[in-house]
């Protein structure tokens, strides 16, 4: 018996070591960045010479930073709202009334994954820098591109929610009870797909918040987003840039927390207590 126990504890140690190394690998850069953003000076030595909040002070009093945050929030919110408003009804109609055509939507939604962002960006610049829709360098091209980028997340989540609740039967039952298609959608379908849709929206939003390639290539300095601001800061002050990264990280952490919480949240009807026995 003895050797077995020691083998077990050896195994546990080994697991612990691997986990420890992984955590260090993942969090060391974040810890380093946090420390750097709090450092007064950090030239020679394992730890900084002193600590200060001046870099946070400087970015939070910098009008440019706040404006960049505002712009990113604006682009994110508008894109998510527009995508939801257009995609949810389309997915619903295809799923319930024209399931044959859903395949087409599936393919079109997955297409963006086939193109690397740089390739897409070059194509978009060529397409939209002149001609009737010359929107390169404006916020509109960014909203358009982000719409395409977040489509797969919204599509997948709404579609899964619709399949889970057996949307076709629910709509037909509502219609048989005298509801119009619109009323069936609003009163029966929407409340039931809300949690999944909210999670997808938050995920999409945080993705937009961290997006750099498209905003750098399509609008550059003309519409400075948080990521663009960060990029510019890195050329001037490393510590201020670290403070931006830590702020961004904290924000994403809050958003992820919300996603997890919402993911576990269920509408009233799904909070099942004990199921009745016959």
């Amino acid at each position: 018996m003895k050797p077995k126990t020691s083998g077990k504890s050896d195994g546990r140690k080994w697991h612990g070591t691997v986990l420890g190394v992984l955590l260090v690998y993942l969090f060391l850069p974040v810890a380093g960045t946090l420390l750097f953003s709090l450092a007064r000076q950090w030239q020679d030595g394992i730890l900084p010479d002193g600590y200060t909040l001046q870099w946070y002070g400087s970015i939070f009093t910098d009008g440019r930073f706040l404006a960049a945050v505002g712009r990113t929030l604006l682009v994110g919110v508008i894109t998510v709202i527009v995508t939801l408003a257009l995609m949810v009804p389309v997915i619903f109609v295809l799923n319930v009334y024209f399931p044959k055509w859903e395949r087409l939507l599936q393919i079109s939604v997955l297409l963006p994954f086939a193109f690397p962002p740089v390739v897409s960006a070059i194509g978009l610049i060529k397409m939209y820098s002149s001609g009737p829709v010359a929107i390169t360098g404006t916020v509109w091209i960014l909203i358009g591109v982000y719409f395409i980028m977040i489509q797969p997340f919204i599509y997948q989540s709404v579609r899964n929610s619709l399949s889970t609740i057996n949307a076709k039967d629910l709509v037909e039952a509502a219609e048989m009870l005298g509801a119009s298609r619109m009323a069936a959608f609003r009163r029966v379908i929407l409340p039931n797909i809300l949690p999944g849709t909210l999670v997808a929206s938050l995920l999409s939003f945080s993705m937009i918040f961290g997006e750099f390639v498209m905003s750098r290539m399509l609008v550059g300095g003309q519409f400075e987003t948080v990521q663009m601001y960060l990029y510019n800061q890195m050329n001037t002050s490393g510590q201020a840039a670290s403070a931006v990264v830590v702020t961004y990280f904290a924000l994403i952490l809050v958003l992820s927390g919300l996603v997890l919480k919402l993911g576990a949240w269920k509408p009233k009807g799904y909070r099942s207590a004990q199921v009745e026995e016959e």
Binding site: N166, E172, A173, E175, M176, L177, R187, V188, N192, G269
Partner: peptide, 21 residues
């Protein structure tokens, strides 16, 4: 249309609205 036929229907899957009591 269905809603004007004055016909009731019970589905195999029950089709109860999960968000309603």
């Amino acid at each position: 249309p269905s809603k004007e036929r004055q016909i009731g229907m019970v589905f195999q899957s029950y089709a109860l609205f999960p968000n309603m009591t």
